[in-house]
Amino acid sequence: MDYLLLKYLHVLGAIVLLGTGTGIAFFMLMAHRSGDAEFVAKTAGVVVVADMVFTASAVVVQPITGYLLADLMDVPLWEGWLGVALLLYGVAGAFWLPVVWIQMRMRDLALESARAGTALSTAYHRLYRIWFLFGFPGFGSVMAILWLMIAKPGL
């Protein structure tokens, strides 16, 4: 496969990961801050779909295009900056997978509250705090990977 096409697809995947992650975080934060269970439920529903369509697609494309690029350039996968990037990719995934489940559960709990006409539950708020905290290492790992891809430091 052509190097420039692979690089384009790889960069596009990084943009989708960062863009979707930023958008999801912003919209979930704004919905949560509203305290409106129905708004939270609808927003979380859209967020779950966005994660499944965009983030999951990029999560699949990134390692494939990354591997093909490394192979094309004869860069060893587990050495230097690329090895660190792969480890960080694992960290990002370890935090993203539970976040997807948490978002689904938050959606369901908010929907229950909206239907009952009650405030968001303690269980919802506990999950929100975990979701919020997991965003830092998950998103931070992706940001660090982007820097490694650009700088390619000698490690």
Rank of each mutant, 00 (worst) to 15 (best):
M52S: 14
I24L: 15
W96I: 09
L109A: 05
F136I: 15
G19K: 07
S34A: 11
L97E: 08
A58W: 03
G13W: 04
H125E: 13
Y89Q: 12
W81R: 11
R107Y: 03
V46R: 15
M73H: 10
L111G: 13
T20E: 02
F139G: 10
A123H: 06
K152G: 03
L133H: 13
V16K: 05
H10E: 03
L109G: 01
A25S: 14
M143H: 00
R129V: 14
A70S: 15
L77F: 15
V53Q: 02
G45P: 09
L18F: 08
M104D: 01
K42R: 15
W96Q: 03
Y67S: 09
F39P: 01
V142K: 03
G19S: 06
T118P: 06
L133S: 11
V48Y: 04
G117A: 09
M1I: 05
R126V: 12
T65N: 06
L12K: 06
D36P: 08
G23S: 07
G23Y: 05
L146M: 06
V47G: 06
F27L: 11
A123G: 04
K7G: 01
E79C: 01
L148K: 00
M149T: 02
W147H: 12
G66L: 07
V47C: 13
A92I: 01
H32T: 00
T65A: 13
G13F: 05
L68H: 06
I145W: 01
T43P: 04
A44V: 09
W78T: 10
P137Y: 07
L18T: 04
G83V: 05
G135K: 10
W81N: 11
L109M: 05
A25E: 06
G35P: 12
F54N: 09
L88E: 08
